[in-house]
Simulated scan of single mutants.
Amino acid sequence: MRGTHGGGSGFMRLFGVGLAVAGPLLGVGSARAQGVGEGALACFQRAEREVSLTEEQALRLCRGSWSVGPAECYSASQAPATFLSTENAIELCRCATSIEPVNCFRQADHDTFLDTMEILQLCSPSVAYALQMDCQPGEWPRRPYGWP
């Protein structure tokens, strides 16, 4: 028996859930409205001024950003509950649109036996979605590894 929300394919419902989860991580929606240039500049200025990163570190963190999300994420990563090294925090927060990567890191650190590098691979949007330095999607492998 179907629920009160109507029929529809299970695939479409699952696809919609996937978009709802991936959208904030990839910057879909209002973050894109600001524009990459404006977002990257605002992120860079905030990272240098409020987060106290060097110019080079702020550039690596904010290059290609659509919002100040990477700077906010980096700031959250320095809280006593998480505190990551500068390099690990930049890796975690590059291309982020919110502090969600830090929440992911904290949860994985608490609930799993993964080491820091494995958690970074799991929670960093730039790593998880194979984003290039400008936060744009890279070319995915044409075939899964191990296939002839």
Score class of each variant (00 low, 15 high):
Phe44His: 06
Gln107Arg: 14
Gly29Arg: 11
Leu53Pro: 08
Leu14Tyr: 11
Cys73Glu: 13
Val102Pro: 10
Asp115Pro: 14
Gln136Gly: 11
Ala58Met: 03
Leu131Glu: 05
Glu50Tyr: 06
Asn88Val: 09
Leu120Cys: 03
Cys43Asp: 06
Arg60Cys: 09
Cys73Ala: 07
Gly27Thr: 04
Ala47His: 08
Glu48Leu: 09
Thr112Glu: 06
Gly27Cys: 00
Arg143Gly: 15
Ala71Ser: 03
Gly37Glu: 08
Cys93Trp: 06
Tyr145Met: 11
Asn88Pro: 13
Leu53Met: 05
Thr82His: 06
Gln136His: 11
Pro101Ile: 02
Tyr129Asp: 02
Thr97Gly: 14
Asn103Cys: 14
Arg32Asp: 09
Leu26Thr: 10
Glu56Phe: 05
Leu120Asn: 07
Gly23Leu: 00
Gly138Phe: 01
Trp140Lys: 13
Trp66Arg: 12
Glu118Asp: 15
Gly64Cys: 02
Glu48Met: 05
Ala31Asn: 11
Cys95Arg: 06
Ala22Val: 07
Ile99His: 10
Gln132Leu: 12
His5Met: 04
Gly146His: 04
Met133Trp: 11
Leu114Lys: 14
Cys104Ser: 03
Asp109Phe: 10
Ser85Cys: 08
Gln45Ile: 08
Cys93Gln: 13
Leu19Asn: 08
Arg2Lys: 12
Ala71His: 09
Cys135Leu: 01
Ile99Glu: 14
Ser65Trp: 03
Gly69Trp: 00
Arg2Gln: 09
Glu38Gly: 08
Ala130Pro: 15
Cys62Asn: 04
Ala31Gln: 08
Ser9Asn: 10
Cys73Val: 10
Pro101His: 06
Leu61Phe: 00
Pro125Arg: 10
Glu100Met: 07
Leu61Gln: 05
Leu26Asn: 04
Gly23Tyr: 00
Ser67Met: 02
Gln132Pro: 10
Ala58Ser: 04
Ala96Leu: 03
Ala20Pro: 12
Ala89Cys: 02
Leu92Phe: 04
Val36His: 01
Gly35His: 00
Cys43Thr: 04
Leu122Asn: 10
Thr4Leu: 03
Leu84Trp: 01
Cys93Phe: 08
Pro125Ser: 09
